[in-house]
């Protein structure tokens, strides 16, 4: 096998030479971010792989395959914390798969009309703007409640965004208990949410974590941590399905996936453990930052500024990674010190 330097690796299928420490770093970063937010991170891996030298079709396929493996690592860790509600995940999964197929059919229709690119991008931006507005409203509302509570006002009856309470009143059988998430509701509620996010994910060509995580919190009523874990469980299954179909199209670089998974194995632990030391509101805040960056990068791409978009995404991802790393380290040292002090 031909090799120019130790840090360059030949990718046998795509036929390009790649700086492999860069792959490990990308895997690590997406592991941290994905473990913390419960999403695949396709929006950041694809441009990163493209910048490292993969042709775009290979960047997308390799990204999907890597996300399946990385989500598996993070789901195992989240399951230990009790963050994964498997009945809820399975209930949503069936509807999500049907939704993804319908979304993909819609894309084929738009492709036949020749307008798929801009339509998908602008709809994506629209949805990200809605999620941004929703999370911002929630954060501002909860901050206000905290402030008023500090000033001594009675805030016992006030909450942030709680649309799920209205949806939980829907008593259409079968009613199901979701023990980890801590509520009982009609199967149709997570089903409809799974279907809707599936259609969008299939239509937009993404894993859907960015849409499903807030939908689980605001529409289904999951605590933030359980939403993160359950979402990762879904990303894992749909990622494996996506990896298989992309492989049949011949656009996956398996060697790159393996190298990236080495970084993701460590990163996913850090991201997941950091959720233990972070408040739900903190997770939502940093999620909102990623949403804004993703939205801006899509707009930049629409106007032909793909390089600036890639640099912006990677810059902010590095910054958010450092923040999550800090949360994890500070929390872990504090816990170990407390254990030492109590002799535990």
């Amino acid at each position: 096998m031909e090799a120019t330097a130790w840090y360059i690796m030949y990718m046998p299928i795509s036929g390009v030479n790649i700086f492999w420490p860069g792959l490990v770093l990308v895997g690590f970063s997406v592991g941290v971010i994905g473990g913390f937010f419960g999403m695949g991170g396709a929006w950041l891996v694809t441009p990163a792989l493209n910048i490292l030298g993969f042709p775009m079709a290979f960047a997308i396929g390799t990204d999907i395959a890597h996300i399946a493996g990385k989500s598996m690592i993070a789901t195992i860790r989240h399951a230990k914390f009790g963050n994964v509600d498997i009945p809820l995940g399975v209930a949503m999964l069936v509807f999500t798969m049907v939704g993804i197929e319908i979304g993909a059919t819609l894309v084929m229709y738009l492709e036949a009309l020749g307008i798929v690119g801009p339509v998908v991008r602008w709809i994506y931006v629209g949805f990200l703007a809605c999620i941004f507005a929703m999370t911002l409203k929630d954060i501002l509302g909860k901050r206000k409640i905290e402030r008023e509570a500090k000033e001594g006002e009675d805030v016992s009856m006030r909450r942030g965004v709680e649309w799920y309470k209205t949806f939980h009143k829907m008593k259409i059988p079968p009613m199901i208990n979701f023990p980890q998430a801590g509520f009982r509701c009609s199967l149709w509620l997570p089903g409809i949410v799974g279907f809707a996010t599936g259609v969008l994910a299939g239509f937009l060509g993404i894993g859907g974590g960015m849409l499903r995580m807030p939908a689980l919190i605001y529409f289904v009523g999951c605590p933030t941590h359980v939403a993160v874990g359950t979402d990762l469980f879904e990303v894992m299954i749909s990622g494996l399905y996506g990896a298989f179909t992309y492989t049949l199209k011949g656009r996956i670089e398996l060697v790159a996936v393996i190298v990236m998974l080495c970084g993701a194995a460590v990163g996913a632990q850090i991201g997941t453990v950091a959720t233990k030391y972070s408040r739900g509101l903190g997770i939502i805040f940093w999620f909102m930052v990623c949403i804004v960056v993703c939205m801006v990068s899509i707009i930049l791409k629409q106007f032909g500024q793909a390089t600036i978009a890639g640099v912006l995404i990677l810059g902010v991802v590095a910054w958010v990674c450092i923040v999550i790393l800090r949360i994890c380290l500070v929390g872990a040292f504090k816990e170990l010190r407390a254990k030492k002090a109590t002799g535990g």
Partner: peptide, 25 residues
């Protein structure tokens, strides 16, 4: 591809779980 990803994902997951359990957290 699916078999390798599943094996690596679960392998890395359980291996890291084993190592993390030794951190005392």
């Amino acid at each position: 591809t699916v078999v390798v990803i599943t094996a690596l994902g679960s392998g890395f997951g359980f291996a890291m779980d084993f190592l993390m359990a030794r951190t005392g957290l």
